[in-house]
Write a protein that binds this DNA or RNA. Sequence first.
DNA 1: GTAATCTGACAACGCCGATTACCGGATTGG
DNA 2: CCAATCCGGTAATCGGCGTTGTCAGATTAC
Lengths: 205, 205
Amino acid sequence: MARAYAGVSPEQRRAERRARLLQAGLALFTTTGFAATKISELCTEAGVSTRNFYEEFGSKEDLLRELHDLINATAFTEVRTALTSLETADVRTRITTLLDVFVRAVTADPRAPRLNYVEAVGVNAEIEQQHVRWVNTWAEFIESEALRAAAAGVAPQRSYRLTAIALVGAITGLLREWQAHEPPLAVDEIAAEIRELMLAAITRP
Amino acid sequence: MARAYAGVSPEQRRAERRARLLQAGLALFTTTGFAATKISELCTEAGVSTRNFYEEFGSKEDLLRELHDLINATAFTEVRTALTSLETADVRTRITTLLDVFVRAVTADPRAPRLNYVEAVGVNAEIEQQHVRWVNTWAEFIESEALRAAAAGVAPQRSYRLTAIALVGAITGLLREWQAHEPPLAVDEIAAEIRELMLAAITRP
DNA sequence: GTAATCTGACAACGCCGATTACCGGATTGG
DNA sequence: CCAATCCGGTAATCGGCGTTGTCAGATTAC
């Protein structure tokens, strides 16, 4: 039966260990690299036993997938709340906000784009599927803004599916380059570049 | 001392085995996945002994890196020859050709973009460096076309560095999506989308 | 024809890391 | 205060795969 030990409930201790393992994964996957990271190293970094690891995750890949989902979900929430608070704003403001919030959310920790766009690529089929789902999610955001622009008469009436996917790729490419670059690229410039690119892409005839 | 066996020189037999190993790598890495592919499987697929493998490559990663370089180098040569034969053509023609030739070269075998943009990502530092070099190479192509456009007066005078990187990312994203999509996306539409995106990106004020 | 030589297949070695069994210790209810 | 219970860490096991040693057979020069 579950009872409290050392003043904290088992659930809470498990949750804390889980959180520490996620942090350890973020730290080691983005430095040692995913393939080279051993489960024992994750446990040492997290201050947790291998036993605990298997209580929380089925494998290293599971942990990576959860991190990938977490990073995207965090950015998603931030972007959505920012956009719903701008319901009546004009298209340019909305697009600027969408991109600024996204870029800021995902570059706040430089390890996030590294994990998202480098380490979590080509690991297994499940993570690839999750990647495709997130690309679709982001593409739908962009698509719906483009359709708003079209409805407002500042963009042509057409399908924006491929344009949206291409723009997601552009953002991904810039962020992947950003995290690899020495000296680092300026976040503002990247956000500005993407904004202009997107505006040019959807207002083109 | 080197002498001919079975009518062919040792160098030629080595070259053929090397070529078969590369083909086996392309086949297995894009189906089984890089991490899950065993060296013994590569050898079986290539009809070669494990001993031979180590005569040609130091590791699985070496083989992958060579494939990655090969795919890019092939596309590079095709694009460059196409562009040099269009020295006097107008900007739009050159850009259209650049993108069409590239997309055709890299989608001719659907396994190529899979290997390039999925399997060869985040494997180790060497391949990441090679990736950065190729992104730079492609970005310089795009940059120089943008500067041509600027010189011709159809695009503003500015730095096209980030724009070029973003466009490379857009192409990469579309091709990565292309190889993962069911039902498959149309290659023509992808090439057309990228062309319009690039023209919009460099002719924007 | 024969001996020297090279080639390539096979198999076994050895390492390394994932996974789990076990046990000592801490904690709490009575 | 004690016994029952649960928790967590350690260490041993197990399996798999990369790597290399060896040998049998094929080939060619003399």
